[in-house]
Write a protein that binds this DNA or RNA. Structure first.
Lengths: 245, 245
DNA sequence: CGGCGTTAATTGTATATACAATACAGGGCG
DNA sequence: CGCCCTGTATTGTATATACAATTAACGCCG
């Protein structure tokens, strides 16, 4: 019954939006965790002194947005956060591979702090000579190389990364957990493996590889730059979407 | 007043969803074009014999989904579709290349009506032996080969395609202009050019190429299947997007 | 104890109604 | 003519109410 103290209206905007925010607050703050029960409409209705249609609209929209799930007779619950699987979404191998029941391992090959040369400075949007953390490593699934990751981190935007070794945890995995972002830019192309790449991927020279370059932004500032390379024939990436006609 | 004939309910599912589909039909079929006025709630209400809340919910959700725009006192209008620039969106070379100031040409290499073999039938979701139109052609920009298109069209879903030669206009261009769709599925991979592909693209054997396979759906029915192949080193595809949360 | 019908809690949809907010349209008036 | 004021069409939100659908829980009965 103590949920009543946590759910307060903020008096701004339409009532149904206030109710949405009131319910999102304990969800955002992890006071209510995935699977937890949300009070039924009838209780919220009396608590907020609103009509059921208003409460229903708030919960229905939260359900459409994926934050809660609802079932007749059973009630409403905090949703489990969706696993990101779409291609160009942030795919974190450390999360995806175990989900497929495979054994995951990250193998760091290099890590250094470099000063930005003109090309890197332009791509990262930093000043010439600014410190950038560069990490190279491989992602394994059941012992097979799934992805080669070459990563530059803007230490001006993410100073905490300077103290990390990235020996067992990939930059990708650490970044998605610790650094917020607002926008991402992707470039996909196909390249032939040169001798260095072939050695790193343990594939024949000349093999067609899928190269995904990603720049991640936080409010117009480039946070990080990644080159993710997949041995082409083996790994396909799919997504499905609906048009925004 | 002739809009009344075009707006019919289909009797399936909740009323507000039927109303949504009824309104989407003329929008999807371009009978109502961007900027066109949608009848006000009051008129729809009497036409469908529904309450205003139901009509309002249908239109409100269509607005949230980006298909219509609404303004108090002014009414509801068909939304102008956002310019399709994203990578995996429908990219029509015949549109994009002239926009870049380059000279565009389509060169048809083959066209045939085939009967679906088991693999094709499965991919297109048609019965074994159903008629399928297959077209192969190349897209040129300033005389250079930019894309090889191999296309299968489900003639059950798009019978009109049986009468077209696709000599100068690509299947892609014709389809985006004439055939509505609701969903698309993409698979991206990298392949090495074999001798046939190398000949078609006029590139060395073994060149890494970007292969984009696209299945386009209209209400769970596969309309068309495309294999779009780009010489990898030269052509990159980019998109930019914001996270969902 | 097990199967089966009943009840009840909860969400899903629909209607009728009301008032507020917005912004165009038209008229009165200087 | 230009300005303001009011009327009005249209969408936005809120309430009260009703019935349908789903399914867990209960209780009855063999």
């Amino acid at each position: 019954m103590d949920w009543r103290a946590a759910l307060t209206l903020d008096g701004m905007g339409p009532l149904y939006e206030q109710v949405k925010r009131a319910i999102m607050r304990p969800i955002r703050d992890s006071v209510w965790k995935p699977g937890d029960r949300i009070p039924p409409e009838h209780d919220l209705l009396s608590h907020f002194a609103a009509s059921r249609m208003t409460i229903n609209r708030a919960l229905r929209e939260l359900a459409e947005e994926g934050y809660v799930t609802r079932h007749r007779r059973m009630g409403s619950f905090v949703a489990v956060p969706p696993a990101p699987t779409a291609i160009l979404d942030i795919v974190d191998m450390a999360t995806v591979i175990p989900q497929r029941g495979q054994d995951y391992r990250f193998d760091r090959m290099a890590r250094e702090i470099v000063k930005a040369d003109p090309e890197l400075a332009a791509k990262l949007g930093v000043a010439l000579g600014d410190a950038v953390c560069r990490v190279v490593g491989r992602h394994f699934a059941d012992g097979e190389i799934v992805e080669l990751e070459e990563r530059w981190i803007n230490l001006t935007a993410v100073p905490a990364a300077a103290d990390l070794a990235f020996e067992d945890v990939s930059p990708n995995h650490w970044l998605v957990a610790h650094v917020p972002w607002t926008e991402a830019e992707h470039t996909i192309s196909a390249i032939n493996a040169d001798s260095d790449l072939a050695a790193a991927l343990r594939c024949p020279v000349g093999t067609a590889c899928l190269l995904l370059e990603r720049r991640t932004f936080l409010e117009d500032q480039v946070v990080t730059l990644a080159r993710l390379i997949h041995p082409g024939s083996r790994h396909k990436l799919t997504e499905r979407f609906t048009p925004r006609t």
